[in-house]
């Protein structure tokens, strides 16, 4: 009898917990999902649900220079950022996991600092510095700043991958006479591809979505998609933004699925 009563209460608590959680899931997901139906609406009105479904907004997006130029710039910046940050992060992650050296903690704090420093502060600093170097408004400037900004994320993901490798294999290769570089290329890298791929994907999305630094560094010819979108939301609220948003959400979904797969293996959130 008593067991019954206690069970009933437990079930009730679980039920309340589930209902509350569903409410929060809806709150979290609503903004990512709502843009999808809106993006298939008409170009003349912004309504939910749309009265008429069409691909108008996508057609406008893909046929107007004022959106395509920023899109291609963003793709270019994100790809270059991904490449450079990965090339820098892989050896750095290896050094951090496998070596101890003087000033390691201090250097780590510095490399990780973009995670903690407000991006507006980082953006202002880079803006002042790049004004001095005449790099504001250039693609190079954007790529350099983004590379620093995404480095900590790439480093964390790749370090986690290296931590799971067996160091004895590396020892073995070096005992057999392989130099560090050869050992890196033939022993470490082949085992590390999944982590490198995930790190690169995250770096790409973070650079592609980044607004604040780009907002400070952008010039008339170097407006990224996120900067264009930021000013578009502020000034015009054009329905085309819904189409852009849906495309961005689709990219996010891909990254999110990779993240889930990664998580299954390690069970630690990114």
């Amino acid at each position: 009898m008593t067991a019954h009563i206690r069970d009933g209460r437990k079930v009730a608590y679980r039920w309340i917990g589930t209902v509350l959680a569903i409410g929060v899931y809806i709150f979290l997901l609503a903004p990512s999902v709502i843009v999808i139906p809106v993006s298939f609406g008409s170009q003349y009105e912004l309504s939910f649900p749309p009265r008429q479904y069409s691909l108008d907004l996508y057609r406008i997006f893909f046929s107007s220079d004022s959106w395509m130029q920023p899109l291609f710039l963003s793709l270019r910046v994100a790809l270059m950022t991904t490449f450079i940050s990965t090339v820098i992060a892989v050896p750095a992650a290896y050094a951090i996991v496998r070596f101890s050296f003087i000033g390691k903690k201090l250097l780590m704090a510095l490399i990780m600092s973009p995670l903690v420093i407000p991006s507006v502060v980082f953006a202002l600093g880079v803006y002042l510095y790049f004004s001095y170097l005449r790099l504001t408004g250039t693609t190079t400037g954007l790529v350099i700043a983004h590379t620093m900004f995404v480095l900590p994320y790439a480093l964390v993901i790749i370090s986690a991958g290296i931590q799971k490798l067996d160091p004895n294999l590396e020892f073995g290769a070096m005992l057999m006479g392989a130099g560090r570089f050869r050992m890196m290329m033939t022993v470490v890298l082949p085992q590390l591809y999944p982590s490198i791929g995930a790190g690169a994907l995250f770096a790409f999305l973070i650079s592609f979505d980044e607004v604040v630094i780009s907002w400070f560094l952008a010039g008339p010819t170097t407006t990224t998609l996120s900067v264009k979108m930021f000013s578009a939301i502020q000034w015009e609220i054009s329905p085309v933004i819904a189409a852009v948003s849906t495309i961005l959400t689709a990219i996010s979904l891909v990254v999110c699925l990779v993240n889930v797969m990664l998580q299954k293996k390690t069970d630690t959130p990114a």
Partner: peptide
């Protein structure tokens, strides 16, 4: 594995973060 030889591995990240994370903060 070792306490020596980390230099070449960490150098690019160290240079980048000194130049693009530390210097901007100093500028501010």
């Amino acid at each position: 594995i070792a306490s020596k030889g980390a230099g070449p591995f960490i150098a690019p990240a160290a240079i980048l973060s000194l130049l693009v994370a530390l210097v901007p903060v100093i500028f501010i």
